[in-house]
């Protein structure tokens, strides 16, 4: 992460996203829980591509792997890919209307889900169930709100 002002705000939002993703949920709800960490990463890559990039994504992915006890590097891989695509397209994403942005987020989160499903298959969990795609849809629905919250945070703290 390149030096800049209010770096702590970025860190805090990541930690909060990690906490949300690790939260114990009532039975059944965990299937439809948004993918907080990739979404927050997408936001920061879109808003500040010169500060939040592949390195941040990689470290973040490693932390997610530790929390989920998936294969080390699995989420790092998917988050790096997401960060790369977002950093490539950030100008276009910024110009998009909210609906288009949500669709882009849908695709990016779907990529994340496919990779983590692949990891589960690697660890011998082959239960076939399309439920793992549900967070994709939920994340896309949550995106506009998350975007507004993070943008107001960024503007209030003048993170740039």
């Amino acid at each position: 992460m390149v030096k800049g002002n209010a770096t702590w705000a970025i860190y805090c939002s990541f930690i909060l996203a990690l906490m949300l993703s690790a939260m114990p949920l009532p039975n059944g709800l965990e299937w439809g829980w948004p993918e907080w960490v990739p979404m927050v990463l997408i936001y920061w890559c879109m808003a500040l591509p010169h500060r939040v990039g592949l390195g941040t994504a990689w470290v973040l992915g490693l932390l997610v792997d530790l929390l989920q006890s998936s294969y080390l590097g699995l989420n790092a891989l998917s988050l790096v890919l997401i960060a790369w695509i977002t950093c490539l397209l950030y100008r276009r994403l910024r110009m998009y209307r909210m609906l288009q942005q949500a669709l882009a987020v849908l695709l990016l989160i779907a990529l994340n889900q496919f990779i983590s499903r692949w990891g589960q298959a690697l660890s011998g969990n082959t239960a076939s169930n399309l439920m793992y795609l549900l967070p994709t849809l939920v994340s896309a629905l949550v995106w506009p709100w998350l975007f507004v919250v993070l943008r107001s945070l960024r503007q209030a703290l003048r993170v740039n």
Partner: peptide
């Protein structure tokens, strides 16, 4: 950078597996 990080991640997965 993308290539480096991706390879690093894949190497980690391989090692962990």
């Amino acid at each position: 950078k993308l290539l480096g990080y991706t390879l690093l991640a894949i190497a980690l997965i391989f090692a962990d597996y």
